[in-house]
């Protein structure tokens, strides 16, 4: 008994530190039209941690809020920022062209990459990641908007999903999780 206690006490800190689990239910590689042509698939970012989010550029509230949160978390990383790739995939490919995504994402950070594709491609990748988006017709002058989920996905250097952040998670918690992978 004493020996067990001694062993437990002597375990190195890393063994008991919180390690992010690997989400085997979500994720996987995909290939889409990209704002950076040579980076047109997830595996192009192998070796980097990826922050992935899905949204649409006509969205006035939730999507820019989430992208701003991504931007803020990246801003906290200092020199490690280069090890983390921000990636945005639209689920509104009819309106969100590569050109539009390029202009839109530049505002959140020079290193943001955007992807779009055919509705079928988008349906496939959103299914892989469990993203829900439902077009909504309404009387609003804004035209078609989407009801949608808004997680930020944290992917490790091998493209595996390690955490999902909701808007309830603090920027500090996001930064801690990202840094645990670096």
């Amino acid at each position: 008994m004493r020996l067990l206690l001694l062993i437990l006490l002597c375990l190195p800190a890393w063994a008991v530190a919180k390690e992010l689990p690997i989400n085997t239910r979500l994720g996987g590689d995909f290939e889409l039209a990209s704002t950076v042509p040579e980076q047109n698939r997830l595996s192009a970012f192998k070796g980097k941690v990826v922050l992935l989010n899905f949204g649409f550029t006509m969205c006035p509230d939730v999507c820019p809020m989430v992208l701003t949160r991504m931007s803020k978390a990246l801003g906290e990383l200092g020199k490690d920022r280069a090890k983390v790739q921000p990636l945005f995939i639209t689920f509104d490919p009819e309106r969100d062209t590569v050109q539009r995504l390029t202009e839109y994402l530049r505002y959140f950070g020079e290193d943001f990459v955007g992807m779009t594709g055919t509705p079928e491609q988008i349906a496939q990748v959103t299914k892989q990641y469990g993203v829900v988006y439902l077009p909504q017709k309404s009387d609003s002058a804004a035209g078609t908007m989407f009801a949608h989920s808004d997680y930020i996905y944290l992917l490790d250097q091998q493209g595996r999903v390690r955490a999902l952040f909701s808007t309830r998670d603090s920027i500090d918690d996001m930064v801690d999780a990202i840094e645990s992978l670096l």
Binding site: D61, V62, V132, L134, Q136, S138, D139, S140, A141, A142, M145, A147, H148, S149, D150, Y151
Partner: peptide
């Protein structure tokens, strides 16, 4: 802007839906 509208965001499970 051309049009201004009052909206809120309704949470339905994991979905966020904008409602006028």
């Amino acid at each position: 802007a051309g049009v201004l509208e009052l909206h809120t965001i309704v949470e339905e499970g994991e979905l966020r839906r904008m409602q006028q």
